[in-house]
Design a protein around this nucleic acid. Structure first.
Length: 488
RNA sequence: GGCCUUAUCGUCUAGCGGUUAGGACACCAGGUUUUCAUCCUGGUAACCGGAGUUCGAUUCUCCGUGGGGCUACCA
């Protein structure tokens, strides 16, 4: 049993994003691969943007993908609470800030936003990189006391100690050095007395015993700050692994302007959780044996951080759709029915349910090769849902020739006389029609297909006829024969 | 602007000094199928540029160039 503890730490400031989900996925897989505990921590310190509904959405997304968490707000665990607002109420961050203040690693800063803007503007005018001047560090204890008594708003800032470059040891990217003089003193506690992101992360990772941090590449430049904090606080610095970014077609960070980014949207479009899971794993990681279609277990057994790539990956919906189709085709009739059912339009669903369970299931299974996403199902299932009026209207649209009439009437005679209604029976019956009429396959199948379904293409003909049912087919053939005779 | 990072077919990627540079998606062409689709077979298509190291660089080093991220009292 490994002592490793990983964490997935989303902030509920929006619906679960596909990129965030990817991070969760890699954490989950890695946790399974090394037998680690995976913690869900809700980073809701941004009071203005955090909302409960987003946390709900995140949980739903994780559930959908089957990304179970070992500890978290709803799972509980011995290292809670798991929401930063709750941890703040317990004074965790305040205690750590006080400790840093006492140790001299932090100081009170009374600079206003305007002060800081000015510093920034000056730096820019002088074309020199901006770092906070640290002027409040020079305040004497009595000055600080006076300002606090006067209730002047303040932040607590970390005083970056001088020293050699901070080295981030990244499992995926190797060592990355950062010059401390360029880091600049940064905010630990905001003026509303909530912790800043970098501070909260370190306090929580430290307190929760996190050993491995797997997160997006966009956090790399935060890492030196966090390392400094871990060290100042006396916590063991965890191992870091920064995942490459997921990009839009224009190669910039995947965002809303590229289209759907919400996990919920992909579910709504009819993507299967397994397909999304598999596809997302292939964005920035590949198995040593080159296999692409893999079950979760197969991925777990093959996964290593060493095989994660370093460059960003463009999200390609076309490949996701292909993969989804592959997963759809691997479903059993029962599984497919379960997955397709929620996507059926009311009209199609009612019509199909009227066929009885067996034919309902068979109807859905008969169109599986046509589906890329589940929402495609309605258009392909339309043949089964067509009422007599629209069927006859379709049939009238075609001009049948003499051989067509022969094929249809011969078929009519046989189908009427069938005593056992099975797909194989229908297949051999159609074969009989072919030999009996002496017409080629094409000259028989096509008119029969149009006469029975009103469509020039669709599911396998014998299956189609079986699902439509004997009475419907016989009735339709009688109607078509009558129609054609009246026209001639 | 500064810091960090990255660079193989259009896209996802394999490659870890010597390969006909491989696979997948997409695309194109055949085939199977009563039809659409599926499926099968084949094809087009890539090492960003320049120096260096080396007998030999896609691979190692440096410099460019392109891309990306960060640069907040957002996470």
């Amino acid at each position: 049993m490994s002592e490793s503890r990983l964490r997935f730490a989303p902030s509920p400031t929006g619906n679960l994003h596909i990129g965030t989900l990817r991070t969760a996925l890699f954490n989950w897989i890695y946790a399974k691969a090394i037998g680690a505990t995976l913690v869900l921590r809700i980073e809701d310190t941004d009071l203005a943007r955090s909302q409960v509904e987003f946390e709900t959405n995140i949980n739903q997304g994780l559930d959908w993908l089957g990304l179970t968490m070992d500890e978290g707000p709803s799972q509980g665990g011995g290292w809670g609470p798991y929401r930063q607002t709750e941890r703040n109420e317990l004074g965790f961050y305040k205690a750590h800030a006080d400790r840093l203040l006492q140790l001299g690693y932090a100081y009170h800063c009374f600079c206003t936003e305007a002060d800081l803007d000015q510093e920034r503007a000056t730096a820019e005018a002088e074309k020199r990189p901006y770092v906070y001047s640290g002027r409040c560090k020079a305040l004497s204890p009595s000055d600080v006391q006076d300002k606090r008594v006067a209730q002047i708003p303040f932040t607590v800032k970390f005083s970056v100690p001088t020293g050699p470059p901070v080295r981030v040891k990244d499992v995926i990217r190797g060592d990355i050095d950062f010059d401390r003089s360029l880091i600049g003193d940064f905010v630990l506690v905001k003026s509303d007395q909530t912790p800043s992101y970098n501070f909260a992360v370190v306090v929580d990772d430290g307190m929760m015993g996190i050993t491995d941090v797997v997160r997006g590449e966009d956090h790399i430049s935060n890492t030196p700050k966090q390392i400094l904090l871990f060290e100042s606080l006396g916590y063991v610095v965890p191992k870091f692994a920064h995942l490459p970014m997921i990009l839009g077609p224009d190669k910039s960070k995947l965002s809303k302007r590229h289209g759907a980014t919400g996990v919920t949207e992909y579910r709504a479009q009819g993507f299967l959780a397994d397909a999304v899971f598999n596809y997302l794993m292939l964005l920035g990681w590949s198995s040593a044996d080159g296999k692409e279609l893999m079950t979760r277990d197969e991925i777990i057994h093959r996964f290593t951080l060493e095989r994660v790539s370093k460059s960003g990956a463009v999200f390609d919906v076309a490949k996701l759709r292909w993969m989804n189709g592959q997963y759809i085709r691997r479903q059993t009739p029962t599984e497919l029915l379960t997955h397709v059912r929620p996507y059926l339009s009311d009209r199609v669903r009612v019509a199909l349910e009227a066929l009885g369970f067996d034919r309902f299931q068979a109807a859905i299974y008969s169109v599986r090769d046509n589906l890329d996403v589940l929402t495609d199902c309605n258009s392909f299932l339309e043949v089964y849902a067509m009422d007599a009026d629209s069927w006859i209207a379709q049939v009238r649209g075609y001009s049948f020739g003499a051989t067509d009439l022969t094929a249809i009437s011969t078929f009519h005679a046989h189908v009427r006389g069938m005593t056992e209604w099975t797909v194989t029976g229908i297949e051999s019956m159609i074969a009989t029609v072919v030999t009996e009429t002496g017409l080629g396959k094409g000259k028989v199948f096509k008119p029969i297909r149009i006469a029975t379904s009103g469509q020039p293409s669709g599911p396998h003909l014998a299956e189609l006829i079986w699902i439509l049912g004997q009475s419907v087919v016989v009735q339709r053939m009688a109607d078509v024969v009558a129609l054609l005779n009246s026209v001639n």
